[in-house]
Amino acid sequence: MEILVAASVGAMVACGVYLILRARTFPVVIGLTLISFGVNIFLFATGRLHTNLPAIITPEQTLYADPLPQALVLTAIVIGFAMIAFVVVLALRANGDLHTDHVDGQPDDGRQKGGS
């Protein structure tokens, strides 16, 4: 399970990093989403990976699933979601105002994309 989780975190972050280095806002937003997914799973795994364990310690139950990372991940998901939503709106606004979806706000090689 460790290898599977580690590999998926790695793959998602790698794809995300590749995508945020693109010049268009849409792939960048997708890349940010992937990175935040990867980070969320990483954060989840900081409580160690267990299956079928309660989140409470009892005298007979010494192994338990750490509940704190789950709470952290929940917070991180909510915040990350809000941020992504904001960036989507910002990207749309930039496209409307600057008439390009280039992240620098300048159409490359002289072409204007979108409306005039």
Binding site: T25, V28, A91, A94, D97, G105, Q106
Partner: peptide
């Protein structure tokens, strides 16, 4: 907006 995009990302 141009600067804000970079800042936000």
């Amino acid at each position: 907006i141009r600067a804000g995009m970079h800042y936000a990302l």
